[in-house]
Amino acid sequence: MPEENTPEPLTGPVLELAKLRAGLAAGLTVEQSQRLQGADETALTADATSFAAELNPTPQGPRSGGDRGPDAGSGTGRGTVGAGVAAYRAKHGLDENGNRPAPKPLPTGGRNPFVEPSYTRS
């Protein structure tokens, strides 16, 4: 009878080394390689490649708006630095030089508003 060549199950430190080799070959870290399951090198290699594929999925299609986002360089002026500066100035009431407008003077009627009222005339 011909003898079948079945791989012997790995155990102990040999199994840990095989997990590390299979994981690093698939692009996994040492911590991720320790989670691999299998009794021989082929099972560990298959588990490592499927685990790496789950962690780093391939993109399904083109991204909406490209890699830079939907409003970057859209031609409408949105998404530029100048548009952001103009929006900030409009929100905070600043002029083109970044200064706030001069406050309006308070009406005092020509008298000192900090004088305490008294009943005596001086």
Rank of each mutant, 00 (worst) to 15 (best):
F51W: 05
P59L: 02
F51H: 03
S64R: 04
G93F: 02
D71Q: 07
G77D: 12
D47H: 13
L36K: 02
G98V: 09
T80G: 13
G93R: 10
R63D: 04
G69I: 00
S64C: 02
A52S: 13
Y88E: 08
P57E: 06
T76C: 03
E41F: 08
G82F: 08
T42Y: 00
A43N: 00
T45V: 15
A46F: 08
V85A: 15
A48S: 12
A83P: 00
N97Q: 15
P70N: 03
R63Y: 01
A87T: 15
T58H: 03
T76K: 04
R68P: 02
P70H: 03
E96Q: 15
H92W: 11
A39E: 06
N99Q: 00
G73N: 10
A102R: 01
E41C: 12
A90I: 04
S74M: 12
A90D: 13
P57Y: 01
G69W: 04
P70T: 02
R68H: 09
L36S: 08
H92S: 10
E41A: 15
P62N: 05
K91C: 06
G65Q: 01
G65W: 01
R100Q: 07
P103H: 05
G73D: 03
S50P: 05
A53T: 10
G38L: 09
P103V: 03
Q60G: 05
P103S: 11
A87L: 13
V85R: 15
A86S: 07
R100N: 06
P101Y: 07
Q60P: 04
T58F: 00
S74L: 14
R89E: 01
A43R: 04
F51E: 09
T45K: 14
G65M: 01
P59R: 04
P70F: 07
T108E: 10
N99C: 00
S50Q: 14
S50T: 15
D40M: 11
A87P: 03
K91T: 08
G38A: 04
G93Q: 00
V85C: 13
N97L: 14
V81P: 08
D47V: 01
F51C: 00
R100E: 03
E96S: 14
A90N: 13
T49E: 12
E54W: 02
G93W: 09
A86Y: 11
G84L: 06
L94W: 02
A83T: 11
A83F: 14
T76P: 04
T108V: 11
L44Y: 03
K104V: 05
D47R: 08
T58M: 08
D95C: 07
H92F: 15
G69Q: 06
P57K: 02
A48T: 11
T108R: 05
T49G: 05
R89A: 10
N97V: 03
T42C: 06
D47I: 00
L44H: 01
T49F: 11
K91N: 05
G79K: 13
V85L: 15
D71G: 05
N56H: 13
T108D: 07
T76M: 02
A39S: 12
V85Q: 15
G75H: 12
P107F: 07
T45G: 15
G69P: 02
